[in-house]
């Protein structure tokens, strides 16, 4: 049984502290997967975060042995947190690149569906997220799943055991709360 499967079983049988052990394992797996995919010579390919998360899940978890929906929820929460760290690192790198000179590309913003969040926004959300988590852990979890994990609001609702209506409302609240927080700190351009 893999470590992750074991941890998930522990969580299932009522030991929530085991959840802490998940993060480093999931993080490491996601990091490796992301690096491997990006190393392939396919410029312009959009790397879907949820595809990564699913890949990691299948690789790490012995699906036969993990029965309960809740366990998947724990896994995805850890994965979303891990993705958060990876994405913030890359956003910071990208911002560093821009200031350091690199390519002076100007892409026209279009309304296409797979548009990218600006690196400044990624870093700002990350900064404000811990404060939100202290005040409203559920809202912060939703942000992690949706914004960093790439799950849709519906999927995140399932993972968090919320009704769709509640999830949409919570998302509205979370966005606004983060926005207000960033305004207060003067972190918006």
């Amino acid at each position: 049984m893999s470590d992750v499967t074991r941890i998930l079983s522990q969580i299932e049988s009522g030991d929530p502290s085991a959840a802490e052990e998940l993060l480093p394992l999931v993080y490491e797996e996601l990091r490796k997967l992301a690096a491997a995919k990006l190393a392939q010579e396919k410029p312009g390919q959009t790397l879907q975060a949820t595809a990564l998360v699913h890949d990691a899940y299948v690789r790490l978890v012995d699906v036969e042995k993990v029965k309960h929906w809740d366990s998947r929820g724990h896994f995805f929460a850890a994965a979303a947190e891990a993705m958060r760290r990876i994405l913030v690192d890359r956003a910071r790198q990208k911002l560093g690149l821009k200031h350091g000179g690199g390519l002076a590309r100007q892409a026209i913003e279009s309304d296409e569906v797979a548009n990218l969040a600006a690196p400044e926004e990624v870093v700002a959300v990350h900064d404000a997220l811990d404060a939100l988590a202290a005040e409203d852990p559920l809202a912060a979890d939703l942000v992690k799943l949706r914004y960093f994990g790439g799950f849709s609001i519906d999927e995140a609702a399932d993972i968090l055991h919320l009704s769709r209506t509640t999830a949409y409302r919570l998302w509205t609240y979370a966005r606004v709360s983060l926005r207000a927080s960033l305004k207060d700190r003067g972190e918006l351009g």
């Binding site: 390919q45 890359r90 990218l116 969040a117 926004e121 914004y147 960093f148 994990g149």
Partner: peptide, 15 residues
Amino acid sequence: FMNHPAAAAISTLNQ
């Protein structure tokens, strides 16, 4: 603000 998940941002370094 936050309309697009950061999750897609991982592809930008590829370009």
